[in-house]
């Protein structure tokens, strides 16, 4: 029984990290139909920033990380994505691949490809015991941060002027511009937000893994993308639920599958993803952006 509860706790914890990764990808897709694969590298660069600032007072290191990643996201928008903004989504997708590849290789060039171990906020790794159930503090923090950020972003999109402009741009970018919304500003804010999200994921991920490697973000971006698709492209709540589902299904399958089948766990995870898409081709929560408008 304890094992069952423990597994569920593990599942929700893994799901929360995936959910946060998906949130950034979902946000950018919602606003500008961009599937940004380079988001993984935003996270990776955040992790490297933390590695470089190890030894600094942690809050300062965290603020620096947020600043670096937000700056990177804004630069990516200005230099890589703005020139192709009017191109079709496939071009933007390829641009994001190119940017991801470029950033990965820049990291290899500067830091080498060998992973680097570093230790930040080790206290977070220690578990809180509730009876015999072990809940790492980091996971409690991750879940709180995921809920907090989702609420924060939802409020931002509904209550602030720029948030409302963003939603307007998401529904019809051209119409929004005709009505006086500054397209560049809306998109820059969206990029900055994904920068903040990536930096937060970087902090949580670095605290969990304690290593920096140039390819780290790739897996998170991939899971984030899958989560966004099953959650419903463009829906923030969907992205979070999608991430949670991928995490929970992965951990539960790891626990339930017999040893000889555990090796093929990913195949089962993606079978579940396919099943969801067959039943609901638009994802669990259909986003405003993906709805066909007449």
């Amino acid at each position: 029984m304890i094992y069952v509860i423990q597994t569920l706790v593990d599942a929700v914890s893994v799901g929360a990290v995936y959910a946060l990764s998906a949130l950034g990808i979902g946000l950018l897709f919602g606003v500008m139909r961009l599937v940004n694969f380079a988001q993984g590298e935003f996270v990776t660069i955040g992790i490297y920033t933390l590695m470089l600032t190890v030894g600094l007072w942690f809050p300062l290191a965290a603020i620096l990380t947020v600043l670096v990643v937000v700056l990177l996201a804004l630069l990516a928008d200005r230099l890589a994505f703005k020139p192709v903004r009017d191109a079709d989504p496939a071009t933007m997708l390829i641009t994001s691949f190119a940017l991801s590849y470029l950033l990965q290789n820049v990291l290899v060039l500067i830091f080498g490809a060998r992973p680097i171990g570093f230790n930040i906020i080790p206290e977070l790794g220690l578990p809180v015991m509730i009876g015999e159930i072990r809940i790492p503090r980091l996971n409690i923090l991750t879940i709180c941060v995921a809920v907090g950020l989702l609420t924060g972003i939802a409020l931002f999109l509904r209550r602030t002027r720029i948030g409302i402009e963003m939603r307007a741009a998401a529904v019809d970018f051209r119409m929004a511009r005709l009505l006086g919304i500054k397209g560049d500003r809306v998109i820059a804010v969206a990029f900055a937000l994904t920068g903040v999200l990536s930096a937060v994921v970087a902090v949580l991920f670095a605290a969990q893994t304690g290593t920096a490697a140039p390819t780290y973000g790739l897996q998170l971006a991939l899971v984030g993308f899958v989560a966004t698709v099953i959650g419903g492209m463009g829906s923030l709540v969907g992205a979070v639920f999608g991430g949670m589902i991928v995490g929970v299904v992965t951990v539960c399958l790891q626990a339930l599958l017999p040893p000889e089948l555990r090796v093929f766990r990913e195949a089962f995870v993606y079978a579940v993803v396919i099943a969801i898409l067959v039943l609901r081709p638009d994802g669990l929560f259909q986003g405003v952006g993906s709805r066909e408008r007449v």
């Binding site: 094992y3 914890s13 990290v17 969990q208 897996q219 992965t250 951990v251 626990a255 555990r262 766990r265």
Partner: peptide, 17 residues
């Protein structure tokens, strides 16, 4: 038990087992 070094970001489940 097993894990996948390229796909898994956490081995919480394996540790619990």
């Amino acid at each position: 038990d097993n894990f996948h070094g390229l796909n898994d970001t956490s081995i919480a489940g394996q540790i619990s087992r």
